[in-house]
């Protein structure tokens, strides 16, 4: 299997403050890659480099390369809208639009000029996100009437609706109860046959349950990356071992 992303010499600065140092890593296609590490180590910052989310915030500087399917997405001739269209994102806190459930899912397809049957697409995405049965009778109710767990699955359905190749998830379960979290993890496992998934989490158990590969970050540096099972069983680096055994974090 090929790589979805090849990250080369990536450095990120917030103003004068550097938060990622010379990151080099590959992210495999159609697999789940977990990014773990203590809070503040730069996980979200790395994730947001993968779909050029930093463009929207003045004062953030990114150097190095992020190659997506072989092409550096930071090249001048790359359209960030197209990148974000092909790379979906689910955020830490559920952020549905204050619109109906249907309109939330239909938003992406609509702005991207979808020509097919919108009703079918919405149903398919809600089914993929395991939300259909709970909302099929009230598709036109406000998304804000859903529970937190349902809202997060709606956000996943919304991301799926533009048929992205990659789904980036930034601690998607951190605001959810254990049952919703379990549902979301099942979903991730189901989706990985078709999508490349990058999952930021500070929960090592979660990484252990769903990730094929895991990357461990500390203070803005990639310390170690490898197949999850191997890394959890035999970490190469002492720092990784310390983190995995809960000595800090």
């Amino acid at each position: 299997m090929g790589n979805a992303f090849e990250i080369r010499n990536l450095n990120v600065y917030y103003g004068q403050h550097q938060v990622l140092y010379d990151v080099n890593m590959n992210i495999r296609e159609r697999a789940v890659t977990a990014i773990i590490g203590p809070s503040g180590c730069g996980k979200s910052t790395l994730l947001r480099c993968l779909n050029r989310m930093h463009d929207l915030q003045p004062g953030v500087r990114v150097t190095g390369e992020v190659r997506f399917k072989g092409r550096n997405i930071y090249d001048d001739d790359v359209d960030p809208m197209e990148i974000r269209y092909r790379i979906g994102m689910v955020f830490q806190k559920p952020n549905p639009f204050p619109k109906s459930i249907f309109e939330n899912v239909a938003f992406g397809p609509r702005i991207n000029g979808y020509r097919g049957n919108l009703n079918e697409l919405v149903e398919r995405c809600l089914r993929q996100a395991a939300l259909w049965d709970e909302v099929k009778d009230r598709l036109h109710a406000s998304a804000l009437s859903l529970s937190g767990g349902q809202q997060q699955r709606l956000c996943l359905a919304r991301a799926l609706a533009v048929e992205p190749e990659v789904i980036l998830m930034d601690e998607p379960a951190s605001a959810l109860d254990p049952i919703s979290t379990a549902k979301l993890e099942d979903l991730i496992l189901e989706l990985k046959s078709r999508y490349t998934i990058v999952l930021v989490t500070h929960n090592m158990q979660q990484a252990g349950r769903v990730a094929d590969e895991t990357a461990f970050f500390l203070n803005g540096r990639l310390i170690e990356m490898g197949p999850t099972r191997e890394m959890f069983a035999n970490p190469r680096e002492k720092k990784t071992e310390e983190y995995l055994t809960g000595r800090f974090g």
Binding site: E82, R84, F97, I111
Partner: peptide
């Protein structure tokens, strides 16, 4: 909230689309 704008940008929306279809309705 900024999170709503980010949600729209992450779906490939342009600035104008974010303004007219997310921010103004909200």
């Amino acid at each position: 909230p900024r999170s709503l704008r980010e949600a729209a940008y992450a779906l490939g929306a342009t600035r104008l689309e974010v303004a007219l279809k997310v921010v103004v309705p909200a």
